[in-house]
């Protein structure tokens, strides 16, 4: 395995690019919510203001070492994942990592959060994190089936190959036209993984006081805000790479990823949320069923 200087630079650059795009995704989410509620919405740099302010707070209450490490894991898991997600012009270590590693890495943040929140010893936080892990268990099953189907279709778990195959053949070879049923199931799983309404069981501000975030203040909350921007980026870019042919250039790449993200966000702000058991039942029924049907089409 040869590590060139270029690769190292890409690995450093990709998370930074991802963070900046992620901030704009947070902005888009809040703007869309505001528009749906007939409000003006936050100004352009609001996500950045929030993060700088949180890091600049004078009181930074840590509940112990695991609390600190948990937040680092939550952000670090996504930072590592970004180096495996190809963007136009930069592949990073995507060719060496592959889809399976990426699927593992996207689970690290939830586990890190669970560790960190555990040490806060706040009952709301513990309820929140148990719900978060339950919902992870729910959406990971359709997510893994979808990934398996895509890998089977393109006979590769290498995202660079998958994107190259789709771009070489044009629209008719895009994942969404080759396996539309899987694409729908994937969108469903992606929406659930974002933790937005109606799958917002672990934040639930009115019920368990924002669950995992309940004891977080200052830079810890700031870390979670950073994590959120990475989360939005990872989910939408992964979907674009699997089903929409990745990005030929930056313009189509950004258009596709913001467009994909807009679908769950618009749905989210029109709905209240499910109960935990309802969520598991729903996610294990519909997206799993769709994904299995999709796989049957792919495999025949």
């Amino acid at each position: 395995m040869q590590v060139t200087l270029l690769t190292i630079m890409e690995v450093i650059l990709m998370p930074i690019v991802a963070f900046i795009i992620g901030l704009f995704m947070v902005l888009m989410m809040r703007k869309l919510a505001a528009r749906l509620q007939r409000r003006v919405g936050p100004p352009l740099f609001q996500p950045l203001f929030d993060i700088v302010k949180l890091y600049g707070k004078q009181t930074q209450i840590s509940h112990g070492m695991i609390h600190d490490i948990g937040i680092i894991m939550a952000v670090g898991g996504y930072v590592a994942a970004e180096a495996l997600l190809p963007v136009p012009g930069m592949d990073g270590i995507a060719a060496k990592g592959g889809l399976i590693t990426l699927a593992y890495l996207t689970m690290v943040p939830s586990l890190g959060l669970a560790l960190g929140v555990g040490q806060c010893a706040n009952p709301n936080g513990s309820i929140g994190i148990s719900r978060a892990l339950t919902s992870m268990l729910a959406y990971d099953i359709p997510f893994i089936i979808v990934i398996f189907g895509v890998a089977y279709q393109f006979s590769s778990t290498n995202l660079v190959d998958i994107i190259a195959t789709q771009q070489a053949g044009g629209f008719s070879t895009w994942g969404i036209s080759e396996m539309p049923v899987l694409a729908v199931a994937g969108l469903f799983a992606m929406h659930a993984s974002l933790g937005k309404q109606p799958f917002e069981i672990y934040i639930a501000p009115a019920e368990i006081a924002t669950g995992p975030m309940v004891e977080m203040g200052g830079k810890f909350l700031g870390g979670l805000f950073v994590m959120q921007s990475f989360q939005l980026y990872t989910a939408s870019v992964l979907y674009v790479s699997l089903f929409l042919g990745g990005g030929e250039n930056w313009i189509t790449f950004l258009l596709k990823s913001f467009g994909v993200l807009a679908i769950p966000v618009v749905i989210a702000y029109l709905f209240p949320r499910y109960r935990t058991d309802d969520l598991v039942r729903l996610v294990w029924k519909w997206p799993v069923m769709l994904a299995l049907i999709g796989i049957a089409f792919v495999m025949n």
């Binding site: 809040r30 505001a34 409000r39 003006v40 100004p43 609001q46 006081a209 924002t210």
Partner: peptide, 10 residues
């Protein structure tokens, strides 16, 4: 929210 003010829970 256009002034950057939003409600928080804790």
């Amino acid at each position: 929210e256009r002034l950057g003010i939003q409600p928080m829970v804790t």
